[in-house]
Each structure stands twice: as structure tokens, then as C-alpha cells.
Simulated assay, not measured.
Amino acid sequence: MLYTDGLVESRTRDLTLGVEWLLAGIPELLAAADLGAAWDKLIDELTHGRHDDDIALIHVRHRGEDGA
């Protein structure tokens, strides 16, 4: 997973706290049936639907990662 600081940092939230929130949300996200929708939900939770900076997120899952 790669992301820009716009996802985890804002004028009202410290970078460290944003990273902690992102990491806390990942286990639930990876268990979701619809990974795309789960990422959208987590991004919305982290940004509260608004952001001060550009946001980019890349998530790559290896085909053999889940035993498939």
C-alpha cells in the first residue's frame, strides 16, 4: 500500500494520528467482501469527506496472498 500525506494529514490532524487511524482500519478493510467499497469508506472516514491536499492511494494484492 502506498499513499500520499493528504490521506493521513490535515490542518486539523497530526500526521502521526492519521497514520495510526489508517493502520487501525486496515484489518477490517482486508476482510471486506468488496475491497473497493471498503477503501472508499475508510478514505471517507479519514478525510470526513473533505481534504486540504491531494489524495492518492495504491493497494496491490498479490494473487497468491490469499491462497488463490
Score class of each variant (00 low, 15 high):
29 L>R: 03
58 I>T: 15
20 E>F: 06
55 I>S: 04
46 L>V: 08
41 K>A: 13
49 G>W: 01
56 A>K: 03
56 A>G: 14
35 L>F: 13
31 A>W: 01
32 A>K: 05
17 L>G: 06
55 I>Y: 12
33 A>E: 15
35 L>V: 14
21 W>F: 12
54 D>P: 08
34 D>A: 12
49 G>R: 00
32 A>I: 11
46 L>G: 06
33 A>H: 14
21 W>V: 00
18 G>F: 08
25 G>W: 13
34 D>P: 10
40 D>N: 13
30 L>Y: 02
23 L>C: 04
32 A>S: 15
17 L>Q: 14
56 A>H: 02
35 L>K: 11
28 E>R: 11
36 G>F: 02
50 R>H: 10
40 D>V: 03
50 R>L: 00
29 L>T: 10
21 W>M: 14
29 L>E: 04
21 W>Y: 13
50 R>D: 01
31 A>E: 13
17 L>I: 14
34 D>F: 05
50 R>S: 13
40 D>K: 10
34 D>V: 06
52 D>K: 01
23 L>R: 15
28 E>K: 08
57 L>D: 12
46 L>Q: 06
36 G>W: 05
43 I>L: 02
38 A>I: 06
30 L>F: 11
44 D>S: 10
18 G>K: 09
29 L>N: 02
30 L>H: 03
48 H>Y: 12
39 W>D: 00
24 A>Y: 07
53 D>F: 07
47 T>M: 07
44 D>V: 07
35 L>A: 12
40 D>F: 02
40 D>G: 10
53 D>G: 07
32 A>C: 04
56 A>F: 04
58 I>C: 15
42 L>C: 05
19 V>I: 15
19 V>W: 04
53 D>K: 03
46 L>N: 06
43 I>G: 00
58 I>V: 15
43 I>W: 01
39 W>E: 00
29 L>M: 15
53 D>C: 01
38 A>N: 09
44 D>F: 12
37 A>W: 05
17 L>Y: 10
52 D>Y: 13
43 I>N: 01
53 D>Q: 02
54 D>Q: 05
57 L>S: 12
24 A>F: 04
55 I>L: 08
26 I>K: 03
26 I>R: 01
26 I>S: 00
55 I>P: 10
50 R>F: 02
49 G>D: 03
34 D>H: 13
54 D>M: 03
